[in-house]
Amino acid sequence: MTRITAAQAQTIITTAMATGVERGFKPLSVIVLDAGGHVVAFARADGSAPGRFGIAHGKAYGAVMLGMPGSAQMARAEAQPYFMAAMNGVYGGHVVPVPGGVLVKHDGEVIGAVGVTGDTSDNDVVAALAGLAAVDLTGEA
């Protein structure tokens, strides 16, 4: 199984944050998790709220643990709120079911997730996908 290396995680974060600056996004926080939901790396831009770790983590954690990106989780939460409430209970309240949680894939296999927060959810996705492109990994947003 391929895994996300620490070097790749740092490049994902650096690129995602640089993309945010280049596009005029609000300060971003970015986390990279491995396939087991463990933190590989995290960074919070200057000016980003201190609570952003939990949001970035929840976006990525929900994606990797449920095997669905944040956009799919949000659609599921809207269609079946009881299901996502139950899933959040299963995972100790650590799931944030909104876009910005991006599954990371290599050869079709989930190898982790990226969570980005700080701007609109759509812009968070743009930054995450830019970070993944920088390390030749595929993201499902």
Rank of each mutant, 00 (worst) to 15 (best):
G139L: 04
V30G: 08
G51I: 14
V98T: 12
A16Y: 06
H38M: 06
A49W: 12
T2R: 14
L137G: 10
I111S: 03
A49S: 15
A128G: 11
A7Q: 14
G36K: 03
T11S: 08
E140F: 01
G101H: 06
A85S: 13
A79G: 10
T117G: 05
L132G: 10
M1V: 12
G112P: 00
Q10M: 08
Q8G: 01
E22K: 15
L66N: 14
V40M: 06
A133C: 05
E22F: 04
A9M: 05
G62R: 03
K59Q: 06
G62E: 00
L103R: 12
P81C: 00
S29I: 05
R44N: 12
P50S: 10
G92Q: 13
A35F: 01
V96Q: 12
S71A: 14
F42T: 07
P81N: 02
V104A: 03
S71Q: 11
G115L: 02
V135K: 08
M17H: 03
A35L: 05
L103K: 11
V95I: 15
R52D: 12
R44D: 10
T138C: 02
G37C: 12
F25R: 10
R3G: 10
D34R: 15
A43G: 04
M87K: 14
Q73F: 04
R44T: 08
G93N: 11
E78D: 14
G89L: 01
I111G: 02
L132V: 10
G92H: 11
G67W: 01
A75D: 09
Q8C: 02
I31A: 05
A77Y: 05
M68I: 14
L103Y: 10
V30W: 02
T14A: 14
G24M: 07
R52E: 09
T120M: 07
A16T: 08
I55A: 03
V39D: 13
M65K: 15
Q8D: 07
T120S: 15
M68S: 06
V98H: 09
M84F: 02
E109M: 05
L103N: 09
S71D: 07
V64W: 03
A127Y: 05
V96F: 12
D34K: 14
M1I: 08
V32C: 00
A60G: 11
V95Y: 10
V126D: 13
A16K: 01
G70N: 03
P27V: 05
H57Q: 08
R3P: 03
Q10N: 13
A127W: 04
R23W: 03
F42H: 01
L28G: 02
G131I: 04
G89V: 03
H38Q: 13
P97R: 09
I111V: 15
I111Q: 08
V32Q: 00
A41Y: 06
T117A: 15
L137Y: 10
S121A: 14
H106Y: 11
A45M: 15
A41D: 13
G118N: 07
